[in-house]
Design a protein around this nucleic acid. Structure first.
Lengths: 129, 129
DNA sequence: CTAGGAGTTCAACATTGGTTGAAGTCAAGC
DNA sequence: GCTTGACTTCAACCAATGTTGAACTCCTAG
């Protein structure tokens, strides 16, 4: 542990990983892809802030929705430097919209399957034989 | 074209690809992974049958549902050697069930996001300060 | 001050679902 | 019987999403 998380608002890679339920390697990966922005200590170690726990959890949720890392990046790109509650809320609304769209896509697939005799005609009983 | 598809029920890779809307390389890929089973001509070329159009279309639909190639393989493994209408229907029912499960998963994600203050506590206003 | 856990970078590997290219073969029409 | 397009195999490559390992540094407690 880097420091009592409750005392200081600084999180090492491991702290953030534990707090948000991902592997440390994933945290580094997300930072490398611009989803998280770490400051560095004099000794070149990453130090995150509590909102990064939020960001990391959002990444996981967004992935469950079906977004790629790049898409999460676009989402995060709309956040201001110091996001406020309203900003996070807008983001979650966008996520929910996305989720609903994926649901609708699946429902279209369902409809396609249901009308599926068109997809899969069995050899249509040659009228000549 | 290998032969008038209407005259003979034999399909080359290209015939099957055109008929089911995938690339020839994808057809070979599916065969290599056991989703399609081709006979061979004396000259070592693949020859498919009309039900393989059906199988190929099902592969695409299953992928839209979110199944992996391996999962489609398991699905196909339950088909008898000469599937009848009822067999195909059971398969499509399974696919629709799968699709519904994915929809439910997305709805759980939606619920998780909606209850999302838990996910993303903003710095919770330290009571000591 | 030193040991040991946690951090660093970088490269390689893994998986999924194919595509692409090279080098060579088949088949069908003229 | 030859040309031409479609076929064959095999290996390499692509993108996404990380994980793993090697080699090395940091930092904190004792």
């Amino acid at each position: 542990m880097t420091a009592g998380v409750t005392e200081q608002a600084y999180l090492s890679v491991g702290d953030l990983a534990r707090a948000s339920g991902v592997a440390p390697s994933a945290v580094r990966f997300y930072e490398a892809h611009g989803l998280l922005t770490g400051e560095r200590t004099a000794g070149n170690q990453r130090r995150f802030r509590e909102p990064d726990i939020c960001r990391t959890k959002i990444i996981r949720v967004a992935q469950r929705v079906g977004l790629s890392i790049a898409e999460v990046g676009e989402l995060f790109a709309e956040l201001p430097a110091e996001p406020e509650l309203a900003d996070w809320q807008r983001l979650t609304v966008r996520l929910m919209t996305e989720a609903n769209q994926r649901i609708q896509q699946l429902q279209r697939v369902l409809a396609d399957i249901a009308s599926g005799e068109k997809l899969c005609e069995l050899p249509p009983a040659d009228p000549d034989s």
